[in-house]
């Protein structure tokens, strides 16, 4: 059209006014909903000076909360990684009855509210719960202690690794593993020399997502941990507690740690996505395609 000046007919939504409006809308929302809160956390955390920030972090209860969160992640992430790899391997490289069902069940934690998971754990391990009396008799403490926190975190993040791996491994098929086996490789050897190198970026991606969720999990953990300050409070729970204590600066200081972690996660995630994780790779030699950029050996 004439007013376009370039002689090209405008496509739908190509009008400059529309474009500007759309862009403004998106930018304002991103600013208000994502950037502003993060900036506020940073500013508030240091509102009473660096010294106060240091003191807030050094507070024994805060330090304990950080430790507890790290320990939880150190247990839950490796276990869920092993689980995710095993589940993805079983589902994509083997046939067994109930495979479809398993695939669906693995995804359940995504669709269940974490608080529901926490309550369910109460019913299973609580005093009035299924194993409550047996556990009490054996003096094993699960609820309101580290095991409960770890279990709840694991439930919530169980699908993360498997979900990254399954589509990729499905697309890769079984040919590579069959080739390795026919050449005489054992199951372990096949996994470590053939399967793992071809899924490593997706695996790392899953681990990073899983970790950031474990460290940030609030709902499920808040139900099973009992919120005991300095004992069973993880970092997210502690932040809430500080906030309710009208200790805004302390709460923001603690929150800035989680926010910092989120930014690190984001950077790693973007770096991994560049390596081709987080989306299905075209298996190059497998499909016999000629156009795939080859992986360059480090």
């Amino acid at each position: 059209m004439a007013h376009h000046g370039k002689g090209k007919p405008p496509r739908v939504g190509d009008h400059p006014l529309f474009r500007r409006a759309l862009l403004t809308f998106v930018l304002v929302l991103v600013g208000l909903m994502i950037v502003a809160p993060l900036v506020v956390i940073g500013v508030e955390a240091f509102s009473k000076g660096v010294a106060y920030f240091g003191a807030s972090i050094a507070d024994p209860d805060t330090r304990h909360a950080i430790m507890l969160t790290v320990i939880t992640a150190l247990i839950a992430v490796p276990v869920n990684t092993a689980f995710g790899v095993a589940a993805a391997w079983a589902i994509t490289k083997h046939d067994f009855p109930g495979k479809r069902l398993l695939t669906v069940i693995i995804e359940i934690p995504f669709s269940v509210s974490p608080i529901v998971a926490g309550v369910a754990y109460l019913f299973v391990f609580g005093l009035q719960g299924l194993f409550g009396h047996a556990l009490q008799a054996m003096e094993i403490k699960i609820l309101f202690a580290l095991p409960g926190i770890v279990l709840a975190s694991m439930f919530v993040t169980a699908p993360f690794v498997a979900r990254e791996l399954i589509p990729l491994m499905q697309a890769q098929g079984r040919d590579l593993e069959e080739a390795a086996t026919s050449l005489g490789a054992s199951g372990w050897r096949t996994f470590f020399s053939v399967t793992l190198p071809n899924i490593k970026w997706a695996l790392l991606y899953g681990v990073v997502l899983c970790n950031s969720r474990v460290m940030g999990e609030f709902g499920a953990v808040s139900v099973v941990s009992g919120n005991i300050r300095g004992q069973t409070n993880t970092l997210p729970l502690h932040i809430e507690l500080l906030y309710h204590d009208y200790n805004a600066a302390g709460s923001f200081a603690a929150a800035s740690i989680l926010a910092g972690l989120a930014i690190v996660t984001l950077v790693v995630k973007v770096a991994l996505e560049r390596q081709g994780a987080g989306r299905i790779q075209r298996p190059s030699a497998l499909a016999g395609a000629d156009t795939v950029t080859p992986e360059v050996k480090p």
Binding site: D175, L176, E178, A179, A180, T181, S182, G184, A185, S186, S193, V194, N198, P283, S284, A285, L286, A287, G288, P294, E295
Partner: peptide, 16 residues
């Protein structure tokens, strides 16, 4: 593994 066959796959299945 122990059968001692050489198998060439339709899509080659080379380790990428």
């Amino acid at each position: 593994r122990e059968r001692g066959v050489g198998f060439v796959f339709q899509h080659y299945a080379l380790f990428p």
